[in-house]
Design a protein around this nucleic acid. Structure first.
Length: 211
DNA sequence: AAACGGATGGGCT
DNA sequence: GCCCATCCGTTTG
């Protein structure tokens, strides 16, 4: 009996339809997916291990009070980047989700560094892999993401998100399609709607921002 | 291990 | 004018 080897799925960006779903579903399914950013300095990539959902009827969501110049891209097509300045000195990276015009997004809170570790270390000013991308402000710095990418399409272009099955296994995974157990907690750093269980992370993963 | 404060600027009441 | 979807170094228990 000849043994056939299943070809690993081609390394492709998540389709538009991935983002055009309930935001909580997208937040969970993004765990295990891979962010890649190509710049003149080189490539940096990391596996998404922590996310938070921000919903339309959610006071913590920037889009809660309707469209403004800042939140315009949240009300635009899903699958694009929503990037904003926080505390005057950091940026946070989000993915626009749900149907066009809904005003919801998923905050990416932590990555497990996969590729371009020296580049990330240079950008961050630290060598320790656990300190490179373990927080929303940190990963944006490590990946070389800036406000110029606000509104950028994540399917085409220098910043992409690839499906979980398109990358080699890391950190004790059983299979590419099984990112591990998902833990649900309240979101970090917010005062409004602080009790909602809208934070998701891979249980036991060492690169999460905090337990 | 946890708590605290300073840096720093755009957004919105 | 006040409020932050943060991070880091320092202090305190």
């Amino acid at each position: 009996m000849p043994v056939t080897i299943m070809p690993r799925p081609r390394s492709g960006s998540l389709p538009r339809s991935f983002y055009t779903r309930a935001t909580i579903t997208v937040a969970r399914d993004l765990l295990g997916a891979v962010m890649v950013h190509d710049t003149p300095e080189g490539r940096a990539a990391g596996r998404i291990v922590e996310t938070e959902a921000y919903l339309r009827d959610d006071p913590a969501c920037h889009a809660f009070r309707g469209p403004t110049p800042r939140t315009q891209v949240m009300f635009g097509p899903p699958g694009r980047a929503y990037i904003y300045l926080i505390y005057g000195m950091y940026h946070c990276f989000n993915v626009v989700t749900a149907a066009h015009g809904t005003g919801e997004a998923v905050l990416i809170r932590a990555l497990e560094p996969l590729e371009g570790l020296p580049l990330m270390a240079r950008r961050r000013g630290t060598e320790r892999p656990k300190d490179l991308c373990s927080g929303p402000g940190k990963l944006v710095i490590a990946m070389g993401i800036g406000k110029h990418l606000n509104g950028a399409d994540l399917k085409n272009g220098p910043l992409r998100i690839l499906s979980a099955s398109s990358r080699p296994l890391t950190e004790g995974q059983a299979a590419a399609s099984d990112p591990g157990n998902i833990k649900v907690t309240t979101r970090i750093g917010i005062t409004q709607a602080a009790e909602l269980p809208l934070r998701f992370y891979l249980e036991g993963n060492a690169f999460v921002s905090r337990r």
